[in-house]
Design a protein around this nucleic acid. Structure first.
Lengths: 117, 117
DNA sequence: TACGTGAAATTACATATGTAAACGAATTTG
DNA sequence: CAAATTCGTTTACATATGTAATTTCACGTA
């Protein structure tokens, strides 16, 4: 099952802190998104249906927690893009950014360290 | 305007060689996709509407060519993912793959060369 | 106990996408 | 020239997604 763009914004909130009540998710998204409360409820329900989050009863309401790990999602997304655009290889992606001069000095320093292992 | 997954498969064909008649696009996709000819015609039309390809008359039919450059598309896709998942930085992405041990020896060699510039 | 409230569940509706079939015009062929 | 074939164009329909409004239900309160 796929997680949509809008849904992933909700996931990011829950990945940062959980469990959370719907109301708190709404509050957390107020800054970044211009969504009505109803919209966020819908997204939470779709995520429930997709088994990406779970809800545990807490009195009259529910507390939501991720079931899908961010790491796994990031992995799937990254691998998907790499496979589709760069033949599944990391180096061509880095080459792409280096050609487009999108590598900051910090990137280069970090990469050097990484490569040194 | 966004290019969908299915549409991008058609674009890849045209990026490889163009201009091409619809019939040839169909032939080129026969291997990889299990699509009816009609499906590919639809995708070509949607790409026309999105101004991602253009068509020039060639007798009774049309020859299609990309208007969108693959480089630009790859750039947008990559930057989108990087921004959404890695705070817009390349190094964290590479770190992610290195942790997940998805870096082949060739990747590492290539990266070394790239970093050396 | 009837009533207002707050939260969740259901319903709504437009656009995008995947996947084609049907239709129509031009052209080739018998 | 009539029929068949070949393209492109239009229409179709189900599921996904963005974005909400409406309805319902459990609870605390008048």
């Amino acid at each position: 099952m796929q997680i949509s763009e809008a849904e992933s914004a909700v996931m990011e909130v829950l990945w940062r802190r959980s469990p959370m009540a719907a109301e708190d998710v709404v509050a957390a998204l107020e800054r970044s998104q211009d969504w009505q409360e109803a919209t966020i409820k819908t997204l939470l329900n779709r995520l429930l249906k997709k088994k990406a989050v779970e809800a545990s009863k807490d009195g009259r309401r529910y507390l939501y927690s991720p079931l899908l790990a961010r790491e796994d999602w990031v992995q799937a997304q990254s691998k998907g893009l790499l496979d589709r655009l760069f033949g599944g290889r990391v180096a061509p992606l880095v080459a792409h950014f280096s050609e487009r001069s999108k590598l900051t000095k910090k990137d280069i320093a970090d990469l050097k360290r990484l490569i040194a292992e």
